[in-house]
Amino acid sequence: MQRDFTKAVSSLSEIFAFIDEHVAGTGISPAGVYAMYFVVEELFTNMVKYAAASAEDVTIAVGIDGSRLTIQLTDHNVEPFDPANAPKVDPSTPLQERRIGGLGIQLVQQMVDDLQYSYADRCSTITITKTLEP
């Protein structure tokens, strides 16, 4: 199932509700649902920040097949931007030099099994897969 969302952070509550619709009755653990929120928010807000020039909606598709979760976000009519290439954060950096930018995507990479980026016909598509633990 997929749905289009206005490219603005104010869409997040609607996006979380969309995820809730998918997980209802699936038995996905609270930790699994938390990871879904976190991953989708991070990838979506990256699109809001870095591809603001296009006002087109972002399409989010969620698929759950047994314990295998697939989430795909598609940003239409944009320049390429692969979030996995964002600068990495060194966790040993002292407080005054710590910045949060880049940390979110690193956490996403820790939470998922796989993150793939593709770009075609001016559309950026990010696909993540994750094995859901009971």
Binding site: F38, E41, T45, R98
Partner: peptide
Amino acid sequence: EYISSAGLGCLLKAQKRLA
């Protein structure tokens, strides 16, 4: 119930200023 990296960033900013 939930905090994202944006929320962590807010707290980090306040922590840096107070420190």
